[in-house]
Write a protein that binds this DNA or RNA. Structure first.
Length: 348
DNA sequence: AAATCGGGGCT
DNA sequence: AGCCCAGATTT
């Protein structure tokens, strides 16, 4: 199967079987392609759809996004995970709005300099938004090409990754590159899946895995490791008038920039926190431990609900990274899933 | 080259 | 209970 034949087969298949009704496929612009590509990093299409709709309704263009506060951007990202994506999105919006006159670059080298845009996302923006030649290599394309070329090794490792990029660059056409990129992702998402539907595939005549009956061998799986378990306590300090105390995380690290309950490792720290706040505990109750799983560890968290009152003649102090959150009059802040979950439970 | 960075929906 | 998803960035 020649490169030309491969491209023709893919493009022909796309006309009949490609997806054309996703929210980011209407009114295509560099902005909408960019937002969708960032949201879709390590995140499934069906999960992204409602987030994309809400996000682009609130931030319809790059200037609206650059003018927004990071807290509000993170609020619209709450529940999507990988919050560095939202922080990078905001940084890039400011660069594009303030330094690039509101226009996205179309060349790969410049796109890659923007925070959060790597080689594959740059290729997607260049091909789909600007309709110029741009190769991509996302999870779908990795699966298609690993099987098509029978690439050994986990695609996360350097050698197979380099091979896959080389093949993707070679196969990507000069014309119709937008349809080609979309088609390769659609093929990987609907046909070349875990249990592949090879009878629906347009490139079986050149697929090394199909021809040798080794579809299940590719792509080779990630080496598995057991996840460590970490434990923490969430202090749900509640005051009837003020609400719950939340603290803003530093921008680096887990849940960066998000608002969370104070976390402690020893119970003695609780008294210190309350004294600093000018509060006194009325009663406290330990709630059931829950497990939150990240990609690289389990977090067992013990919620401790503390009803507190203000000390006489003392106004409640707090730092600039602290604020009271009243679930009945919510404000736009980013919060990690367990915090949202606990606030919902306690408010019902 | 390896680790970090979420959350959820399938299997 | 694993597995992995329209990856990028830091160490």
């Amino acid at each position: 199967m020649t490169t030309q034949e491969f491209q023709n087969a893919i493009l022909k298949w796309f006309l009949v079987s490609g997806r054309d009704n996703l929210p980011w496929q209407k009114n295509i612009s560099a902005y909408s392609v960019w937002i969708s590509e960032i949201m879709l990093q390590q995140t499934r299409v069906n999960t992204v759809i409602p987030y994309f709709e809400r996000f682009t309704r609130r931030f319809p263009d790059v200037r609206e996004l650059s003018n927004a506060s990071i807290d509000e951007v993170l609020h619209y990202w709450t529940g999507l995970g990988y919050y560095a994506r939202a922080r990078n999105l905001h940084r890039t919006a400011n660069i594009v709005a303030n330094e690039l006159s509101g226009c996205f670059p179309s060349d790969i080298a410049t796109l890659i300099t923007l925070p959060g845009i790597g080689r594959s996302t740059a290729g997607a923006i260049r091909s789909i938004a600007f309709k110029k030649r741009g190769a991509i290599l996302d999870g779908n394309v990795k699966r298609v090409l690993s099987r098509f070329a029978a690439i050994d090794g986990w695609p996360g490792h350097t050698r197979p990754l380099k091979n896959l990029w080389s093949i993707s660059e070679e196969l990507t056409p000069l014309r119709n590159t937008d349809s080609f990129s979309q088609a390769m992702m659609d093929l990987g998402a609907t046909v070349c899946i875990s249990q592949p539907k090879c009878h629906l595939c347009p490139i079986t005549t050149g697929c090394k895995a199909f021809l040798s009956g080794t579809q299940q061998k590719y792509p080779q799986k990630k080496p598995k490791t057991s996840l460590p378990v970490k434990t923490t306590h969430f202090l749900m300090i509640y005051n009837k008038k003020l609400g719950y105390l939340l603290r803003k995380n530093k921008s680096q690290g887990i849940w960066g920039g998000l608002w969370v309950f104070p976390q402690i490792s020893k119970m003695q720290e609780l008294d210190l926190i309350l004294r600093e706040l000018g509060l006194k505990s009325i009663e406290s109750r330990t709630l059931a431990t829950s497990r939150h799983t990240f990609s690289h560890y389990h977090l067992d968290y013990v919620p401790i609900l503390i009803h507190a009152r203000e000390l006489k003649g003392q106004t409640t102090r707090k730092t600039c990274r602290e604020r009271w959150y009243n679930p009945n009059t919510p404000v736009s802040l980013g919060m990690p899933a367990p915090v949202v979950s606990l606030l919902e439970q306690l408010n019902n």
